[in-house]
Design a protein around this nucleic acid. Structure first.
Lengths: 247, 247
DNA sequence: CGTGACCTTGAAGGGATTCAAGTGATGTGG
DNA sequence: CCACATCACTTGAATCCCTTCAAGGTCACG
């Protein structure tokens, strides 16, 4: 249901960028041209390690991954969940040194592209360069929403917000069904994303189900009451910039 | 002590960008050319309002401001504190619609620059465009550190991390003394930034002082034990990218 | 000198954590 | 084919960090 056959390595990325501004055939070809051959990564493996200095940026073609930081006591904070079509370490292009790691949360297919080729895109296709820039700006906007959720929302509101966000982001790349989507993440992973313990995530999911907001089992979520879910989350999708407008 | 006389509107910005990569005289001139005349903003006033669609991006020349989001119950979450030399709504250049607001936390001097002029910079000065891109990428890195602090650090560690971050960011633009800096923010504002109540911020500051980590009064902070402060915060400045390297 | 903004301190309460025990599904080797 | 291990999830009980509410103190300023 959720995974259509992809005919090209850049299809999900192009889907997502095209939601925001028209891409020319030339620009699509330029993107396609800089990508290396796809690789697969097993769940739990690092796609990009913390503190390294990659010479490539990596596109997530399918699967789920997460940016994370590890603390001295061994605890982990996930700072973003990545879905198909996300450029997962575009930051390293200009940051040079990774300030965080990226781990595969499911079976992932990725494709790398050398930094030099991306610099070349900003020189020869400034408009495409701005779309890549926009992609990193939206990452920052997602971070800000997570900060608001973590700092000021209730536990239930926080989890509801994450569900709303993932539904729309997956929808943008054609990975959702009718008010349902696959989310193959453990409650421990969700806890690391929400800044909560896995025990408490379990209780919150139980609460969401008993409130009739969702069905949620076996890594599959069905949203039963989108309106009330958005209310509880105070969800406003502006930050995902899902409108088409020239940049 | 902390505020040197600035000879040009872009001096703090150029200071900061130059820490990361060499700027040509031509690039500095291009930046200078796109800025409108400076304005002043009083503390508490919005510099950019939530949900608007600015046609300009704004440079903070001096003072402190904050990105924030407001919730339905009236509570507020600050997602970043801006200092001199920060481009405070570069995001709107490509996001179009503001997903957050920016408020002046002290007397501020700002200068606006039309979006069209910034687009022009990305076309005609791609290298300078990448430096502006890097600036927004560093914002995202700061957001991630705040997420880690909020989700997984202790209250004291979180506050200590903020103090470390602000010290280095202010140092980068020449706004610090010898292990001391001005931070004219109320404890209520700090609470909104840390996701805590002002009451608890008061207790944390008391604790930091009684531990001999800082002197902190009258909006002025003196760091007494930088090493231990960094330990408590698990502070690693990589994310601020304070090294010079071609982009 | 009165007023308001900010900070401090105390006491009570709540949301989330930790620890622990137990369930269920899956997989594996004897 | 079943005994056993593993992993994810659930549930309960005790605890803790932080919040809320409230009162009092300090300081700047009209």
């Amino acid at each position: 249901m959720t995974t259509a056959r992809k005919t090209s390595r850049v299809e999900t990325l192009v889907d997502k960028l095209s939601l925001r501004d028209r891409l020319s055939a030339e620009e699509v070809a330029a993107l396609e041209a800089v990508l290396d051959a796809p690789k697969t990564v097993a769940p739990g493996a690092d796609i990009v390690r913390e503190h390294t200095r990659p010479m490539y940026s990596t596109l997530l073609i399918s699967g789920f991954s997460a940016r994370y930081s590890t603390l001295e006591d061994g605890s982990r904070q996930i700072t973003e969940i990545n879905v198909s079509g996300d450029f997962i370490d575009l930051h390293s292009l200009l940051m040079k040194q990774m300030d965080h790691g990226v781990v595969a949360l499911s079976d992932c297919v990725i494709a790398e592209t050398p930094h030099a080729a991306l610099i070349d895109i900003t020189e020869r296709h400034p408009h495409l360069g701005r779309l890549l820039w926009l992609d990193t700006i939206i990452d920052a906007a997602i971070h800000r929403q997570w900060l608001v959720a973590m700092g000021r929302r209730s536990g239930l509101g926080h989890l509801a917000h994450l569900v709303c966000e993932l539904y729309l982001r997956l929808q943008a790349v054609g990975q959702t069904g009718e008010m349902r989507f696959d989310l193959p993440l453990t409650q421990s992973v969700l806890g690391d994303a929400l800044g909560l313990s896995s025990v408490h995530v379990s209780r919150l999911i139980t609460e969401m189900k008993s409130e009739g907001l969702v069905n949620w089992s076996g890594g599959r979520i069905e949203i039963l009451d989108w309106r009330r879910l958005c209310e509880i989350a105070e969800f406003d999708p502006t930050y995902l910039r899902l409108q088409c407008e020239p940049v």
